[in-house]
């Protein structure tokens, strides 16, 4: 192999730069913070539109699908597995039970490093105590 020394040195520098954010945190003594969700209190607990396991993994697909149904097909209601009907409205139906976005949505979103731009256009309802 030609120039193997240069190539290996380059790879090491690349790997070091690529992982630098991790080292930065480690050296600053910051431990990885696991998401800490605040769930609805016992007495307020209602059934979600779908199983928690599904929501955890696929909520974005469900939301995208609701959006498609509401905006493009003019449909309003979603009938769930549990036989109940829900209005397909994120700010009303979803935030109705999970009003505190920073203690719910943002927890996982910042953990996995995604920044959905929902709030660029959508408004957090006034009557909910939201930071």
């Amino acid at each position: 192999m030609y120039d193997s020394g240069k190539i290996i040195a380059g790879l090491i520098i690349f790997a070091a730069l690529f992982t630098s954010p991790v080292w930065y945190d480690v050296l600053n003594g910051k431990a990885l913070q696991r998401p800490d969700l605040v769930l609805p209190s016992k007495e307020n607990q209602k059934e979600c539109v779908a199983a928690a396991e599904f929501m955890r993994r696929d909520h974005m697909r469900l939301l995208n699908d609701w959006r498609y149904e509401v905006v493009r097909k003019g449909e309003t209601y979603f009938s769930s597995d549990n036989g109940k009907e829900y209005e397909m409205r994120f700010t009303k139906t979803c935030l109705g039970c999970h009003p505190n976005t920073s203690q719910f949505c943002d927890q996982c979103h910042s953990y996995v490093g995604v920044t959905p731009y929902c709030w660029d256009c959508h408004n957090k309802p006034r009557n909910l105590s939201i930071q």
Partner: peptide
């Protein structure tokens, strides 16, 4: 006609949408 809708519905075993909501 929104296969993704059907996919999601299938995944969660959801039933049909309410009749009559379509104009």
């Amino acid at each position: 006609g929104s296969t993704s809708a059907k996919l999601v519905a299938k995944a969660i075993g959801a039933g049909k949408r309410l009749a009559g909501t379509k104009p």
